[in-house]
Design a protein around this nucleic acid. Structure first.
Length: 963
DNA sequence: GTTCTGGAACTATGG
DNA sequence: CCCCATAGTTCCAGA
């Protein structure tokens, strides 16, 4: 680990680092798992961990890693130094509160100042950012009427010890709701230091790098970060951070334990003139130049400094050898965590802790290490010039990178940060981050924040106090509107730090997303972009994903990275000559290891299954008088996991679910991942499970798209069957890419017409036909679902399936109309379970979990006021992930509403059509499907299942097919 | 030689 | 405790 770096480091530091590394506890354990246990006992777990991990990880990563690694170490060392300083809360300049409004806002930006790169957009002040997960306190009204300013919970200036060398003057300011325990920190100075003393670093030693660390945030910075300092390795770090930092007491213990080390480090650091170690050593590989405004931000984004920085800390990663090193250690169990993706905010600790809070609490100081004025508008940390770091580093980046300190960062938004701004912060932040998050005491629950924010304040802020990233902002205000003209694709496989880039996010139509600011064209403005969440909660920076700057020949859009509160922000310029539009061809998505993030002190979100993100764009339009109007637009949800990306086709609903053995009817499938060459194959298996019949259906390509397949049901092999025949079909995108099978029935043809009473048709009298589930279609698994309330418009979406309600496929109007979305489609709820039916699941779809049958199992749904219709509309919790949602991009909308999605879906069907169709469907029902259905096949099934306990013969049915 | 990708092996987590 | 399924990460290989 130390090797190279050490060499670079002063002997003292080096020695220290070694020592650290060797510390018992630490164990450096690469193995996280190990470390964790040790922690308690060990004195300085964190340290140890830190040391290694990164390296290890890095190593594996690749050649590049080497460099990074080195850097990492350096940082590590540096960090230590800082820590020492930092720890004390107040250490250096702590105590000061910046926050005051006027405060110098770290955020302040110089509007108008051109960015370093090309067109100089107007600088945007950086807002204090809260950590991704965390919520920042709602902005408070600024002195000026009508304007808001972000407000840190409290700000504390960390000080750089005066050291300050850092210049930073001191320190960074942290906003802390609570008390900060860690030492970590804050040392913002580093950057400052750098700036101030460029010479010191000048040699290009690792130290020179700006502190990417700042970024450390993301991985935890805190944990790592801070922890990082303490524990480099992910695992360890996490552990350490976790264990140690989680409590103040723990931290204290740590500190004590590490005291010695810290002291030494500090000393060493001081000798070097590092004010604070923190600074971002990593930041950019290239020598840091004081003059470079960006330097302040930290490592260069371009280089991905940030990432690197993050990585460093975070990186603990596993070495190549061990695949999942990180997680093991301290991972928390998902189950325990409660909701996975954050489905429910409430659940998350954040609320209480501060997890989010954590982030928020310490809103990192924006870094402006440098003077705001000078550099540029962007206060953030990162944003260094692109050139700074080779992308390649990416891999290593992990190692290098420090996690961005998300929230941690001091949030001073207002306050200015010390320079190094985020980075510096970050670095320290890393540590800090954790600290920060953790440290802070209780923070208002996310919900609370949400409410506060949701209120709808005007998007007018002071340039000195821009809104945190987790602040909801309107996409439009007065004549201004930030619009995503071209939405990104619904899938984008994010890359890990250990991988190479997987490219920029692309648009569905090809090309890349395009964002445009309407209503303003006076001068260049900076467009910010970060990766936000896609869950039902308020939009906020995603804890497990970070934007990744893509550079290359093919990238035409200039951009640079910055780190705001631990969240990497990609900044681009909107030029009047381009109609204030930007082609987002420079934004990739980096996936952070769940274990790294989860271990962060304040992090409450769970990474597992939390793979959807949204691209969030922001623009701060200067209004004069030190005010800006901030508008934001978020893209459609983007699924970032490989799996989903290559995911198997999924059938979420289909209609009809049965037809005559003659086939020929049109069957519409809705789901996701359908391809132009997707095939739909019908099969029948014998009692022994052997394939008895197989037939590929003819797909109507013109009426099919990614989420809808329209096909013609093939003719069944035996047209003389006297009973309904249960068959199955699946969608295939190629070998190994088949959807789960769906059940379908072929009904015998009855020449004699048998009129059915309306009642029966519609509702199947309870007695005779169990409403729900019985339907054959559903295969076993599904519980009877209650129907979604038809009444509720909201549910009219695809999910609703009338068919479902009726339970019988035949009921669906089989008329031709497209299927677009027919009401008939039904969604299956999670199959398992609810009913009790043990059915094998022939139908295993239901991707989304539905609530169990509210109606006691019987619940099938009866939409139209059928006898059995559920009393109250039952609303499935689709929300989080509406089935369709992912795939369907609704243009322009930020929120993935199923409905919207659907609208878009049908190829032939224009957007918006969906609704109509649905209605039609309904209408059809209402009017009497009979009429609408020339040929009706009615199948009555009785299933024990429907009722509940059945064992399952679920299908006893009577099918009548009217000719 | 790099950057992108697509695939897939491995391992952890949960049921 | 074992088995299986699902998911997250890391690797590999080809374009």
């Amino acid at each position: 680990m130390i090797t190279t770096p050490q060499s670079l480091l002063p002997s003292s530091l080096a020695s220290i680092s070694h020592r650290v590394a060797n510390l018992p506890s630490n164990s450096l354990s690469h193995n996280p798992g190990l470390s964790k246990p040790d922690f308690p006992e060990n004195s300085c777990p964190g340290l140890s961990s830190s040391s290694n991990p990164g390296r290890d990880l890095g190593a594996p990563a690749g050649s590049m890693g080497a460099a990074s690694c080195e850097d990492e170490e350096l940082e590590f060392k540096l960090v230590f130094g800082e820590e020492k300083e930092a720890p004390p809360l107040g250490a250096g300049g702590l105590g000061e509160e910046l926050d005051s409004e006027d405060a110098p806002p770290c955020c302040r930006l110089a509007l108008g100042e051109p960015p370093p790169y090309g067109a100089a957009p107007i600088g945007i002040p950086r807002s204090p950012p809260p950590r991704p997960g965390m919520h920042s306190p709602p902005p408070r009204p600024a002195p000026s009427p009508g304007t808001w300013e972000s407000q840190p919970a409290r700000s504390v200036r960390l000080g750089g010890p005066g050291g300050g060398t850092g210049g930073a003057g001191g320190g960074r300011v942290l906003e802390c709701p609570s008390i900060r325990i860690t030492s970590i920190s804050p040392t913002p100075e580093p950057p400052a230091a750098l700036e101030d003393n460029p010479d010191a670093w000048g040699d290009g030693s690792p130290r020179d790098y700006p502190s990417p660390e700042g970024f450390g945030g993301y991985r935890e910075a805190g944990g790592q970060g801070g922890g990082a300092f303490f524990s480099p390795s992910p695992g360890s770090s996490s552990l350490s951070s976790w264990s140690f930092f989680s409590d103040a007491s723990d931290e204290a213990a740590l500190y004590a334990a590490c005291d010695e080390v810290e002291s030494e480090l500090n000393e060493a650091a001081s000798r070097f003139g590092l004010g604070s170690p923190l600074p971002s050593p990593r930041a950019s590989p290239r020598p840091w130049t004081p003059e470079d405004p960006w330097s302040l931000y930290g490592p260069s984004p371009g280089g991905r400094g940030p990432e690197d920085s993050w990585l460093l800390l975070s990186a603990p990663g596993p070495t190549p050898a061990s695949p999942r090193p990180a997680s093991p250690c301290g991972k928390r169990r998902y189950s325990s965590s409660g909701t996975p993706s954050s489905a429910s905010p409430a659940l998350s600790r954040r609320g209480s802790l501060g997890e989010e809070g954590s982030e928020p609490p310490p809103p990192p100081p924006l870094p402006l290490a440098h003077d705001p004025g000078s550099p540029g508008p962007f206060d953030y940390v990162g944003a260094p010039p692109a050139e700074s770091i080779p992308q390649k580093t990416r891999r290593t980046s992990s190692e290098q990178t420090v996690a961005l300190p998300r929230s941690e960062e001091p949030a001073p938004c207002n306050g200015k940060l010390p320079l190094g701004a985020e980075e510096s912060v970050a670095l320290p932040g890393g540590p800090r981050k954790e600290v920060a998050g953790m440290d802070y005491l209780a923070v208002p629950s996310p919900l609370a924040w949400s409410k506060a924010r949701i209120g709808g304040h005007s998007p007018i802020f002071r340039t000195s106090a821009l809104p945190p990233l987790d602040w909801p902002l309107p996409s439009q205000y007065e004549q201004l509107e930030l619009r995503i003209e071209v939405q990104p694709r619904a899938h984008h496989r994010a890359h890990y730090e250990t991988e190479g880039s997987r490219g920029a996010v692309k648009a569905a139509p090809g090309g890349h997303p395009i964002v445009k600011l309407l209503g303003y064209s006076e001068k260049p403005l900076t467009l910010q972009m970060f990766i936000g969440t896609a869950d039902e909660r308020n939009l906020r920076p995603h804890a497990f994903y970070q934007v990744h700057r893509i550079t290359g020949k093919m990238v035409a859009t200039a951009s640079y990275e910055a780190v705001v509160s631990g969240t990497k922000v990609l900044e681009m310029t909107l030029l009047p000559e381009n109609n204030m539009a930007a082609n987002i061809d420079c934004a990739g998505i980096l996936k952070l290891r769940n274990s790294d993030i989860e271990l962060r002190k304040g992090e409450t979100d769970i990474g597992r299954k939390n793979t959807r993100v949204r691209l969030v764009f922001r623009v701060h339009v200067p209004q004069g008088g030190g005010k800006v109007i901030s508008v934001q637009a978020a893209s459609v949800p983007i699924e970032c996991s490989q799996r989903s990306a290559q995911e198997l086709p999924q059938v979420e609903a289909y209609s009809p679910s049965a037809c005559s053995v003659r086939g020929g009817e049109e069957l519409v499938l809705t789901g996701s991942n359908f391809l132009p060459d997707s095939k739909v194959v019908f099969i029948e298996r014998g009692p022994d499970g052997k394939l008895q019949w197989e037939e590929e259906a003819t797909v109507n390509r013109l009426q099919s798209n990614e989420v809808t397949l329209t096909l013609t049901v093939p003719e069944y092999s035996n047209k003389r069957v006297s009973r309904p025949v249960q068959v199955y079909f699946y969608v295939s995108n190629g070998r190994r890419k088949r959807s789960p099978t769906q059940s379908f029935k072929f009904l015998p043809v009855i020449c004699k017409e048998e009129p059915l009473p309306d009642s029966s048709l519609r509702g199947f009298p309870p007695a005779s036909a169990p409403p729900f589930g019985t339907d054959m279609d559903f295969s076993p698994p599904r519980p009877p679902y209650p129907s979604y309330p038809h009444e509720d418009p909201a549910y009219e979406t695809p999910y609703l399936s009338e068919g479902f309600s009726y339970g019988t496929p035949p009921l669906y109007p089989q008329t031709g109309p497209p299927p677009s979305y027919r009401p008939g489609l039904r969604m299956f709820p999670e199959t398992r379970g609810t009913t009790g039916c043990a059915h094998p699941p022939p139908v295993s779809f239901l991707p989304r979990p539905f609530p169990s049958d509210p109606y006691g199992g019987r619940g099938s749904s009866f939409p139209l006021g059928l006898p059995f219709s559920p009393p109250a509309p039952f609303r499935p919790p689709l929300p989080a992930s509406p089935p369709l949602e992912g795939p369907f991009p609704s243009q322009g909308d930020v929120h993935p509403l199923p409905a919207e999605g659907y609208n878009k879906v049908g190829p032939g069907y224009g957007p918006g059509e969906g609704a109509p169709e649905q209605e039609k469907s309904r209408g059809g029902y209402g009017s009497g499907f009979r009429d609408s259905v020339p040929i009706q096949g009615i199948t009555l099934e009785e299933g024990g299942c429907g009722t509940g306990g059945c064992e399952c013969e679920c299908v006893q049915e009577i099918a009548l097919h009217v000719c």
